[in-house]
Design a protein around this nucleic acid. Structure first.
Length: 239
DNA sequence: AAGCGACTCAACCGCTCCAAC
DNA sequence: GGTTGGAGCGGTTGAGTCGCT
């Protein structure tokens, strides 16, 4: 951890203390974050706005997921990195609860090596055997599966119904106009109706995050944070 | 137990983008 | 069209931790 210190203008730098976290959570929960530059002044934090934003986006916002990556998540990162390169924010938008910073760290510490190792193996294999049609085909299929969420938006009617919360997230995080966003929200509403049981307490936090990004489209029952964001109850921050 | 290099990950820095004027 | 200011992004840093010798 970086040791806390101050810069020339008296603003604190380095590791965030629990007290600072509490102040930031309390302020953003109550007032939102329309202006990061002004926020630290009003929240009583001796931090720059950028530092507050980073702390909130990467560690404090509702729905953020910590801990080990699943195999599925790692595969998704690898696939999306193949497609988008170092566009961490785009990649993060496909992984609910993961921040761009965390994904970037994961890539540099684990996945990059794994991919390099994998590509060296592939190169050796390719050198020793002629190209097979099945390999080419599997690449095409992989590309097509990544396009699904985009296609959903490009057509004005959804091509597929979401089968998991991750699918809904993929759809929501694609570029969308207000009209096709409404279609996605309809799908989302259907999904919630049909899948009330499988949604875990954690997933409800994800739902809160969806409502945070697209609250105007969601039913009021989904935008009540106390229903699915127990951490705030613990902190006593809900009104 | 101590030393040391490799690794992890929270945080900073500098740049770009974009909207408002 | 040019300028300015805020937000966001990606690269990099460096303290802490881990694991090997």
């Amino acid at each position: 951890m970086r040791t806390p210190n101050c810069d020339k203008s008296g603003l604190r730098k380095g590791t965030w203390t629990p007290e600072e976290d509490m102040k930031l959570i309390a302020y953003v929960t109550k007032h939102g974050h329309a202006n990061w530059r002004q926020l630290p002044k009003f929240a009583g934090l001796a931090r720059c706005g950028k530092s507050c934003r980073l702390r909130w986006m990467n560690y404090l916002r509702p729905g953020i997921r910590r801990g080990n990556y699943t195999d599925e998540e790692e595969e998704t990162i690898i696939k999306l990195h193949k497609r988008f390169g170092n566009r961490w924010s785009i990649i993060a938008s496909h992984l609910p609860g993961r921040s761009d910073n965390e994904i970037k760290n994961q890539w540099h510490s684990h996945l990059k090596k794994r991919c390099q190792h994998h590509s060296v193996k592939n190169e050796k294999a390719e050198a020793s055997t002629p190209k097979q049609d099945s390999l080419v085909e599997s690449n095409v299929q992989e590309k097509d599966s990544l396009e699904v969420s985009t296609i959903t938006f490009q057509n004005s009617s959804p091509a597929t119904s979401p089968s998991s919360l991750s699918d809904v997230f993929c759809m929501i995080t694609e570029p969308a106009s207000a009209s096709n966003m409404n279609l996605v929200i309809d799908d989302f509403a259907d999904f919630v109706e049909e899948n009330t049981d499988p949604i875990s307490a954690y997933s409800w936090k994800e739902l809160y995050e969806i409502s945070h990004f697209s609250g105007e489209f969601l039913a009021p029952s989904v935008t009540e944070p106390e229903s699915f964001c127990p951490v705030y109850d613990v902190l006593g921050l809900l009104e």
